[in-house]
């Protein structure tokens, strides 16, 4: 079973994402900001990260840059999932090493499609 870390400061979004991803046979952990997500990755590197952009303490962009510099061979797939829906943010995220990008609002079909595209399904 693949392991996905859901990083979002909204408990509601984390709950919705968890439900969708558990339905796609993922094991789930949650983090409410980038700093807690880094700690979680130090404990166990996930196969996938579903990542919000705007969060307190450390935002999704800084998390991604830190994650991509972490030692170890495992490179988790990172799928942004954010209300930052303009082309400049998308390009910036991809340049920083994101694998896919979901523009909120989202549904199960979109999540499945994006996870499929990056080879997680």
């Amino acid at each position: 079973m693949k392991y996905c870390l859901v990083v979002d400061d909204s408990a509601v979004i984390r709950k919705v994402a968890r439900r969708i991803l558990e339905g796609l046979q993922f094991r789930i952990a949650e983090a409410e900001d980038g700093a807690r997500a880094i700690d979680a990755c130090k404990g166990e590197m996930p196969d996938a990260v579903l990542l919000d952009w705007n969060m307190p303490i450390m935002d999704g962009y800084d998390f991604l840059r830190t994650l991509r510099q972490m030692p170890g061979g495992k490179r988790p797939k990172v799928v942004f999932c954010t209300t930052e829906n303009d082309i400049a943010h998308i390009a910036r995220a991809m340049h920083a090493g994101a694998d896919e990008y979901i523009m909120k609002p989202f549904d199960k079909e979109i999540v499945a499609s994006k996870f499929h595209q990056v080879g997680l399904l």
Binding site: I87, I90, A91, M94, E100, Y101, I102, M103, F106, E109, I110, S113, K114, Q117
Partner: peptide, 11 residues
Amino acid sequence: VQRGLPIQMLL
């Protein structure tokens, strides 16, 4: 544009 279209192609 989010169903089936890879983000790089969208860009």
